[in-house]
């Protein structure tokens, strides 16, 4: 069963002795439902990864970083949660995110979706859906509402951040432009 897009899985493992970019590895690409599951069943669940690791699944050709021209003016819908919730929610939310991506759950707005990232961190894990620059607020909010429904989350649990704000912040937290 062919997917609408070819997707790439990236793995990031934090090694402070190397540059950030050198810690990011392209694992493989896939473009069928069957190859997606073969890959998913073969790799560790996010909850089994060590702190400092990320998975990123992006449309093939888009690098999972702010600097990519498709991401630069975009933003992300972000879910973050404490370690307490990790084992019950992290793996479920990541899988639901992947199913939204490969199934093209955002319909026409799926074109604006670049990919998704899960960050495993000591304090708070994060899952984010990355989007390119959108033509309207309504489109950003539409994607957010569909995404929140896919994740089956309560209200005020996902926030939209503009990448440019995140890239230029110093120590202050990145503000949420929208919260759903």
């Amino acid at each position: 069963h062919p997917l609408n897009s070819r997707w790439a899985l990236w793995f990031f493992k934090n090694d402070r002795s190397r540059a950030w970019r050198d810690n990011l590895q392209l694992v493989t690409t896939f473009d069928t439902v069957e190859d997606f599951w073969a890959l998913y069943n073969h790799i560790q669940l996010p909850s089994k990864l060590s702190s400092g690791c990320d998975y990123a699944v992006f449309k093939d050709g888009i690098q999972p970083m702010w600097e990519d021209s498709r991401n630069k003016k975009g933003g992300r819908w972000l879910v973050s949660f404490s370690r307490q919730g990790r084992y019950s929610e992290l793996d479920r939310l990541w899988l639901e995110t992947l199913l939204c991506l490969i199934g093209e759950s955002f319909e026409e707005q799926s074109r604006a979706v670049c990919g998704a990232v899960v960050n495993i961190r000591t304090k708070r894990d994060k899952i984010a859906l990355w989007m390119r620059e959108m033509e309207s607020q309504a489109a950003v909010l539409h994607i957010g509402r569909v995404y929140k429904e896919c994740l089956d989350l309560p209200t005020k649990t996902i926030g939209y951040q503009v990448h440019a704000d995140a890239a230029t912040r110093s120590n202050s937290p990145v503000k949420h432009k929208f919260v759903l």
Partner: peptide
């Protein structure tokens, strides 16, 4: 062209099919 869309239920059913 036409967008290829799969719902969650179908994708999950494919998980364990040979």
């Amino acid at each position: 062209g036409t967008r290829i869309i799969y719902d969650r239920k179908f994708l999950l059913e494919c998980k364990n099919s040979p």
